[in-house]
Computed example of a mutant assay.
Amino acid sequence: MNNSLQRAQIEPIMDNLPRPDWSVMIPTYDCAGYLAETLRSVLDQAPGPEDMQIEVVDDGSTDDPEAVVRAVGGDRVSFYRQPSNVGHILNFATCLSRARGRYVHLLHGDDRVEPGFYEALQQGFESSPDIGAAFCRHRYIDGDGKELSIPDPEQPRAGVLTAGVERLAEEQRIMTPSITVRREVYEELGGFDPRLVCSEDWEMWVRIAARYPVWYEPEVLAGYRMHEESNTGRHFRMAEELGYTRRAIEMFTPYLPPNRARDIARRARSTYADTALNNARRFARSGDRQGMQAHLLEAVRMSATPGVLRQAARIALSGGFVAGDAEAA
């Protein structure tokens, strides 16, 4: 099946009206409690409306995000509400279609950026017309905004990411608030794939990196919030997000260099099999046999190598997992 048929088509802007450099598009769904922080993080470094469009696109929330927009952003921030709940993938497509800027930043309504974000990434785009996307290092934050961790830098200095498509395909290295994309790239490659409820962002970044150089900024300039009501958090316990990770690997493998695609995909599956095993260990220690079982099964589906099978068996025995449970699953 042609993957492109599944994705929203992002039409070019054909009018002759002035366009800003930036479109900061903020999709929301029942995250109004975080939205004020998100908006302030943008407004504190935003140029005027002639240079930056800022718009919240709401997917039928029940917690009145428009009131937050008006209180924090006044007339500087636009607000668009979907007529009905369409799901986050189609809401992303609406964001991309409504964006008028040359560079599009899709910033979830519970994430944030830090001072200097837009200036640093614009330098990446301006370094070469070939750059398709630019991203920075990020920090993971909790529901209260406290730092949880910061990934190691991908490379020591700002510049085009070395071996970009291979590195981005081996592991999900980019969190959505940290990346910006030329609008014309979305016009060419289409929107996010609706067959992925999770990992739709990873598939998109690999799709872009397979066609364009990607710029990397090692400064920590974005915050990705980890909480139970996030999209990933809702799909964590039963390993659903890892099932979508596996599907994303299957989908983006054809984009990879043909002579290396098989090895890159194998390394990606091995990485996330290890993730599933580590998750299973945590569930086993906490006495959650159902969560343990789900992650063990996903580890084996991801990479049924002898090493993974041995580790899965040891974890299963330590957590009281028996064959009948597997049959029931």
Rank of each mutant, 00 (worst) to 15 (best):
N2I: 15
N3C: 00
Q9I: 09
I13K: 09
M14K: 14
N16D: 15
P18T: 10
W22D: 04
S23Q: 04
V24D: 03
Y29E: 07
L35V: 01
L35G: 01
L39E: 05
M52G: 02
E55A: 07
D59R: 07
G60N: 10
S61W: 07
D63R: 02
D63Q: 06
P65M: 04
E66R: 12
A67K: 12
G74C: 10
R76E: 06
Y80Q: 11
V86Y: 00
H88W: 11
A93W: 02
T94Q: 14
S97H: 12
H105I: 11
L106V: 15
L107I: 09
H108C: 14
D110A: 04
D111L: 00
P115H: 10
E119W: 09
F125E: 10
F125G: 12
E126S: 14
E126Q: 14
P129G: 01
I131E: 07
F135H: 07
C136T: 15
Y140E: 09
G145P: 07
K146S: 14
E147G: 13
E147C: 13
L148Y: 03
P151I: 03
P156A: 13
P156Q: 09
E170D: 08
E171V: 11
E171C: 11
P177W: 02
P177R: 04
L196R: 05
L196Y: 09
V197G: 12
D201Q: 08
A209Q: 06
A209R: 05
R211V: 05
V220I: 14
G223K: 10
R225V: 06
H227C: 11
E229V: 05
G233K: 03
F236H: 13
E240C: 03
R246H: 06
R247P: 00
M251C: 02
M251W: 07
T253W: 02
T253F: 03
Y255N: 08
Y255L: 11
P257A: 10
N259M: 15
A268T: 04
T275A: 13
A276T: 04
R282C: 02
S286I: 01
D288N: 08
R289N: 01
A299M: 01
R301M: 00
M302T: 02
A304M: 07
T305D: 07
A312K: 04
A313I: 00
I315P: 05
L317F: 12
G319I: 01
F321G: 12
